[in-house]
Amino acid sequence: MRFSPEAEKVLLNYSWPGNVRELRNMIEQTVLLSRDSVIAPEQLSLLTGLIKMNQVDRQKENMDRFPLPLQGISLEKVERDFVLQALEQTSWNVTQAAKLLGLTRDTLRYRMDKYKLEPSSSQ
């Protein structure tokens, strides 16, 4: 018997608060109740924490993603809008805006020049 790659991922991502005993007991129960030679994530439902945690991880992944409209977008417009929002949010403090965007100050200055953004352009 072996675990599918998906089941391995679930097992590796679980914090195992019961330590090795919890892991051993779960594997024993799963092996005894499994009819297949490959153990899938669904078969790990003996530990509801595993499944719930996996669902929470998927939800977090989806929350970190921006939906792409079916009609598409202009990446330059999105970038310009984010730069402008960060600048407005920080009262045009370039250093703070760069931190918000995960950029260096020089990179943000480059983008400000590229999109011709100045404090008066937001009005």
Results as ranks from 00 to 15, higher is better:
F3G: 07
F3R: 08
P5D: 14
A7D: 07
K9Y: 04
K9G: 08
K9H: 11
V10G: 01
L11Y: 12
L12V: 05
N13Q: 10
S15A: 11
S15Y: 10
P17N: 08
G18S: 06
R21K: 07
R21E: 09
E22S: 07
L23W: 03
I27R: 00
Q29N: 08
Q29L: 07
V31G: 04
L33Y: 01
L33G: 10
S34Q: 02
R35C: 10
R35G: 15
S37C: 07
V38N: 11
V38S: 12
I39D: 02
A40D: 12
A40P: 04
P41T: 09
E42W: 03
E42P: 00
E42H: 06
L44Q: 07
L44K: 06
S45I: 00
S45P: 00
L47W: 02
T48C: 01
K52Q: 15
K52H: 14
M53R: 15
N54E: 15
N54H: 14
K60F: 03
K60H: 06
E61N: 06
E61L: 09
E61S: 03
M63H: 09
F66Y: 05
F66G: 03
L68G: 02
L70S: 11
Q71Y: 11
S74I: 05
L75C: 05
K77H: 13
V78E: 15
E79M: 11
R80W: 10
R80H: 15
F82V: 13
V83Y: 06
V83P: 00
L84N: 11
L84W: 11
L84H: 06
Q85V: 07
A86G: 10
L87F: 07
Q89M: 10
T90I: 01
T90G: 00
T90K: 09
T90E: 10
S91M: 10
S91Y: 14
V94P: 14
T95A: 13
T95R: 15
A98C: 08
K99L: 03
L103I: 00
L103K: 05
T104H: 14
R105C: 01
R105N: 11
T107R: 15
R109Y: 02
R111P: 00
R111T: 03
M112I: 10
M112E: 04
K114N: 02
Y115K: 07
L117H: 01
S120M: 06
S120H: 09
S121P: 01
S122Y: 11
S122N: 08
Q123M: 08
